[in-house]
């Protein structure tokens, strides 16, 4: 029952996100757009490039979808509405999403095409830039909650959301999550204008549909994670807890899309240097500030 409810919530959010995405790029609001896109992919040929690394090529889309779903499975949407409330939940999210890199390197290497390969290796550089900005802010969140249980993290924000308690951590985590979701302006591995699709380039038909679905679910997972870690999870007046979770998640997901809409793609060199020269010192400062606040304010 819980599993069905969580998966349903995930699918509904992904659907809404797809509709909003199509709305932003075409200017037309069509609720059936995701269904039509799915059916179109179903009817198209799913090509296999010549001399591929077949194992990598086939595994990548599935792996991306699996890790996105696993990440979502440990995030609570309401008290009791979580598939597995692991004792190491916050760490698990991070661990599962590390496989996004593996999936993209596979998708890049598999087809033996130049655009894809450059895209895959570019994402490794991107991971080196964003990864610390995912884990360091989560550490500060866990310090306050005194636990890695995601439900405990939400409970710790009952009086004050983390976005207020540690705004610096929120900003860093939000940016890093966008980079992890490889959406514009961080779409370096897929970059339509630079790599003509990059890691997506050789996927067609149903494989492409799975890949696109996985990317949507990934955004939702990251938005849910942001909600749980910083926006007080299910906490909120009047509406039932699950509704608050959904509203917050969709708000975060849509703001991620909007940021990409209004910004040009970042340069890889800039991303790396800003993350390391500015982001990591700030993330360490965030840990220090949170540490002092915990000691000073009982």
């Amino acid at each position: 029952m819980t599993i069905a409810a969580v998966l349903l919530a995930l699918m509904v959010s992904a659907w809404l996100l797809a509709v909003i995405e199509a709305w932003l790029s075409t200017g037309r609001l069509r609720p059936v757009a995701p269904l039509l896109a799915g059916l179109s992919h179903l009817g198209r040929e799913s090509l296999l490039p010549r001399k591929p690394d077949r194992l990598f090529f086939e595994t990548a889309p599935v792996l991306l979808l699996v890790v996105a779903v696993l990440g979502a499975a440990v995030l609570p949407l309401a008290p009791g509405l979580v598939i597995a409330d692991l004792a190491t939940g916050a760490l698990f999210v991070n661990a599962a999403l590390a496989y996004v890199l593996v999936a993209l390197i596979m998708a890049g290497w598999g087809p033996n095409g130049a655009y894809a390969m450059v895209g895959g290796w570019r994402f490794l550089g991107q991971l080196i830039a964003y990864a610390m900005l995912i884990v360091m802010p989560i550490t500060a969140v866990a310090m306050r909650a005194e636990s890695l249980l995601n439900t405990a993290i939400v409970a710790s924000q009952a009086s004050l959301w983390n976005i207020v308690y540690q705004p610096l951590g929120f900003v860093l985590f939000f940016i890093a999550a966008m980079a992890l979701a490889f959406r514009a302006p961080f779409d370096l591995p897929t970059a339509p204008g630079e790599l003509a699709g990059g890691v997506d380039a050789e996927y067609t038909g149903m494989r492409l549909a799975v890949l696109r679905l996985a990317r949507l679910v990934l955004v939702i997972t990251l938005a849910t994670a942001t909600t749980v870690f910083y926006l007080g999870g299910w906490h909120g007046p009047l509406l039932p807890p699950w509704a608050w979770s959904l509203i917050k998640t969709l708000t975060v997901a849509v703001s991620m899309l909007l940021a990409g809409h209004y910004l040009p793609r970042i340069r890889e060199a800039d991303l790396l240097s800003w993350c390391w020269k500015l982001g990591i010192p700030l993330a360490l400062l965030n840990i220090l500030i949170v540490g002092l606040m915990i000691l000073v304010v009982p």
């Binding site: 514009a184 779409d187 970059a191 204008g193 630079e194 209004y262 910004l263 040009p264 793609r265």
Partner: peptide, 12 residues
């Protein structure tokens, strides 16, 4: 330029 940089707003 918008198309090249995935800057959808500028492109549109």
């Amino acid at each position: 330029l918008g198309r090249q940089l995935s800057f959808v707003w500028l492109m549109r």
